[in-house]
Structures are given as structure tokens and as C-alpha cells.
Amino acid sequence: MTDRSRPSARLMDGTAPARRLTEATAAAAADLRLRTGVTPCLATVLVGEDPASVTYVRMKRARCEQAGIRSRHVPLPAGTGTSRLVDVLGELSADPAVHGILLQHPAGPDVDERAAFEAIAPAKDVDGVTTHSFAAMSFGLPGFASCTPGGIMRLLDEYQVELAGRHAVVVGRSAILGKPAGMLLLGRDATVTYCHSRTADLPSILREADVLLAAVGRPELIRGEDLKPGAVVIDAGYNPGNVGDVHFASARERAALITPVPGGVGPMTIAVLLAQTVEAAERQLGLG
């Protein structure tokens, strides 16, 4: 049952802050171009023609144009192996005209995705997928955050969510979402618990979360009755049917703040990717 005595949660809209960040990024790209004559360039690499991946890449390339970032697309046929993909990423890493590299994932069953990620030069890892980026982020050193976790942190700041001393529960432990998100939360003095497919009695842990990040990829796994009243709920899941990992209707009756799906985390992810591409260009030109 939901608690009808308290108002529904306030929505954490990611569209407006993402638009403002993109506008700031466009201004930074224009300033860089004025000062140096260089237009920041993001290379997107796509293996195969998975419809969802094709759509994501097309969306990211369109956002690049809006932000004054040049987009270079490198399509590779389905069945491309690890060796060929590593060579392509190495060539892009060595190209001074390319400032950021995005490998759209999943890259397919024929690819060792970790080996492919590691072929991206850390200076151009604007998606924050290499072990170098993860280590730098974890230790608070210069580098690039994984884009979705980085966007989540910006969204929490946008809604003035205090993290120090609060219990943050991350459901999911992927290398580019759950794990880095937990490290970023830890870096902001939250007490972090990771949960995953082998966590015993998940609902009891969820009910202790002041801040809950759902990033497990299972549609509507988490329901309102699993939440601590007044929790902040970040739904980073995106499943068929435009549903997240949280059952939105019931969770909204119990949470204080909640992200919608779509329109919450997604726009912030792309905005951070663009911002980090311009930042990478500035650093490579000795201006950052």
C-alpha cells in the first residue's frame, strides 16, 4: 500500500538542466573555436546495426551539432572482431583532429568489450569507460567520469540533494554505471551500499536508502513499498516500453524526489558527454 497522507514526489526533470549544460557547452565550443580555430570533434564508433544503438548514436550526433561539436561517425559491420575494433579505436586515439571517442555499447558478441574500451586513449575517453578513467574518478584525480553517473551527480546537485552522511543504495554493479556511480557518491561523503543479483533480502536494504539509484536493467523491479518514505529515487534503467527499473506510480507516492523515465537521467548523460568532449579538446590544446 502507498502512503496517501503525504504528497506525491517532486519530479527530477533532467531535460531543463541538460539544456542549460548543452548551452554552456556550445558557448565553450564557440569560444575555443574563436581562440584557436579548432572545432571540438567527437568520434562515434558503432558495430553492427542494432536499431536501439543506431538511434542512440543518431541522437548523440544531433546533440553534437546543437553544441557546435563536429561529429565523425565510424560504422563497422556486424561481426567485426576485437582486433579490428581495437585497431580502429587506436587510429582514432592517435588522430589529433579527434578529441573524444565514444564506442557505442554493447559492441556485439564477437567483441571483448573491455579490451576495446582499453584501446581508447584516456585523454579522449569522454565516455569514462576505461580503467584509467575509473581510477582517476575514484581517487578524485583529473579525468572523465562515466557519463551517466556524472549526469546523475549533476542532477542531484541541481535539486540540492545533500549527500554527506546519507545512506545511498546502488542497485547494479556494471563497470560503466553502478560501480562508478557508487564511487562518486562515496566521494561526496555518502555511505554507499551496492546491491546486485545475489543480494539477499533486497527490499530490506532498499528501505534503508535515503538515496536510491536503480541501475540493474530489470523493468519495474523496485516498487513503492520497497522504499523508505521521503527517499530520493534515481532511476537509471531504461527498458522496452519506456519503463525504468522502478515502478514509477507506486514509488512516486512514497519518495520525496524521483526521476521520470524517459526525461530524467537520459538527457543528462548526453549533456555530460558533450561537455566532456569540449573539455577534452581544451586539455589537448593545452588550455584546460
Rank of each mutant, 00 (worst) to 15 (best):
D127Y: 04
V45G: 00
L141G: 02
R84P: 04
Q66E: 15
G100T: 05
F117V: 06
R61H: 06
Y56W: 05
G128A: 06
R35V: 12
A28H: 09
Q66Y: 07
M137H: 02
A27V: 09
A27M: 08
P77W: 07
K124C: 05
G68H: 06
A135P: 00
L141C: 05
V98L: 06
V126F: 04
A107M: 02
L92R: 02
H73Y: 10
A135M: 12
L89S: 00
L42S: 00
S83I: 13
G48E: 04
K60N: 11
A119D: 04
P109C: 00
D110H: 13
Y56G: 06
V38E: 13
H105S: 12
L32P: 12
R61G: 00
T36K: 06
G68C: 08
G48T: 00
V54E: 13
D112A: 05
F144R: 05
E118S: 01
R58S: 14
V74D: 08
A27H: 10
F139L: 13
T80F: 08
S146F: 02
A24N: 12
P51W: 00
E113G: 09
T39R: 15
A24W: 10
H132T: 14
V86Q: 08
M59Q: 13
R35E: 15
L34P: 09
V111M: 03
C64D: 08
T39M: 14
R58Y: 00
L76F: 03
E113R: 11
T25N: 04
A78Q: 11
H73D: 12
G143T: 07
D110M: 13
F117T: 05
R70G: 09
A119L: 02
A145E: 15
A135F: 13
